[in-house]
């Protein structure tokens, strides 16, 4: 049973391109995903691929232009702001920048307690005690409750953010690059904390990141985004070991191998990510793809299965016309690559 289902999600932003002229920026173009109970779906992509927009739409912080988001049986896109409020209990978010995601005028304790009182889960002394318990669950001390955000370290701030997301005991948590603002050793601890919390509470994670090692470590399945679309999706091992889409290949080949003797052949994409304003109707990678042929510019690339649960949006890969490289999954996602080789407390 899926706890979260995204159907044909589209998000366009109107932007001014001159006096009185407006154009549409296609941040997300027709994305469908589903997230099983207790599963982690990693959403990877470079900056500007629209992965964060997906996160904002899923939590309804941004209204999708079209498409549906089902949380259980409820279509979130049909609900008004006030109708959404009680539903938000079940889908929470951890934000990218821990220092900006905490109200600077509230103590950490007040921040974590707010969802409890908003949803009438607890009040008064009971709420304070539950807050203290949440602090312990995320590895903070109850003494940290009286601290203001600026008195906490980045890692502690993000733990507060995680505690806030856990307070309502949600089913789904959207994690929007929760560790990218932190340094590597702190990252590793937080990733482990997230994994442990998931096991204890059978949470579903939508994990948005550009960091392949983090994604590989946490995710059951991975979706690779490019310019507002999903180009490849499948089990993490499938996608990481045998990437079929040229874009995924390029991403994987760019991950530094932890074994210095292993030679990786880099698959280079030339140029920059094209502008998401008026993107082409055909495969969006054509301008950068080393395997592109004229036929690629004639029709849109749609996701097609190449193995059970493994879908790729590439005409040529589906027909087996391009060589599929093999990467060692282990070497990409060992915790070593997370920690930068250093042994970090608590990680196996």
């Amino acid at each position: 049973m899926s706890s979260l289902r995204i159907e044909h999600l589209v998000k366009h932003y109107a932007i001014r391109t001159g006096f009185a002229s407006r154009q549409m920026l296609h941040a997300v173009d027709d994305i469908s995903l589903d997230l099983g109970a207790g599963e982690t779906l990693g959403l990877v992509g470079e900056s500007g691929s629209g992965k964060s927009t997906v996160g904002k739409c899923v939590t309804m912080l941004e209204r999708p232009t079209s498409g549906h988001i089902f949380l259980g049986d409820v279509d979130l896109t049909t609900l008004s702001y006030n109708e959404l409020r009680p539903v938000r209990k079940d889908i929470q978010m951890v934000f990218q920048d821990p220092s900006d995601s905490l109200d600077p005028r509230r103590t950490a304790g007040e921040t974590v307690m707010e969802p409890l009182t908003l949803h009438h889960i607890a009040s008064g002394k009971d709420a304070i005690e539950r807050t203290a318990k949440l602090f312990e669950q995320v590895g903070l001390k109850p003494e940290h409750m009286v601290r203001f955000p600026h008195q906490l370290s980045g890692g502690q701030q993000q733990r507060v953010g995680i505690a806030r997301a856990l307070a309502t005991d949600p089913k789904v948590i959207v994690l929007d690059e929760p560790t990218s603002a932190l340094d590597v050793s702190v990252q590793a601890k937080l990733i482990k904390l997230l994994r442990d919390l998931q096991r204890e509470r059978s949470l579903s994670y939508l994990f948005i990141s550009h960091d392949l090692s983090v994604i590989g470590y946490l995710s059951t399945r991975v979706a690779v985004m490019y310019l507002g679309q999903i180009v490849e999706i499948g089990e993490t091992r499938q996608v990481f070991e045998r990437p079929h889409h040229p874009y995924t290949m390029a991403l994987m080949s760019a991950v530094p191998a932890s074994n210095p003797l292993e030679r990786r052949e880099r698959i280079h994409l030339s140029g920059e990510i094209p502008s998401p304003i008026a993107p082409p109707n055909h495969c969006r990678l054509v301008s950068r793809c080393p395997f592109a042929v004229p036929a690629c510019s004639q029709q849109p690339a749609v996701l097609e299965p190449i193995a059970p649960g493994h879908l790729v949006a590439c005409h040529r890969a589906v027909k087996g016309e391009i060589p599929i490289p093999t990467f060692a999954f282990g070497s990409t996602v060992t915790v070593d690559s997370l920690e930068g080789g250093a042994a970090v407390e608590g990680l196996e």
Binding site: K56, T59, L61, Y81, N82, L84, R85, P86, R88, K89, Q92, M93, F95, Q96, D97, D100, S101, L102, D103, P104, R105, R106, E114, P115, L118, H119, G161, R164, A167, T168
Partner: peptide, 26 residues
């Protein structure tokens, strides 16, 4: 546009709550 405003919305705060309890004090 800050993330704490988004967070206040995402935990289920009303418009009044987000505006007058989080944004205005800041």
């Amino acid at each position: 546009k800050s993330q704490y405003a988004a967070a206040a919305t995402s935990v289920g705060g009303s418009h009044t709550n987000v505006l007058f309890r989080h944004l205005v004090p800041n």
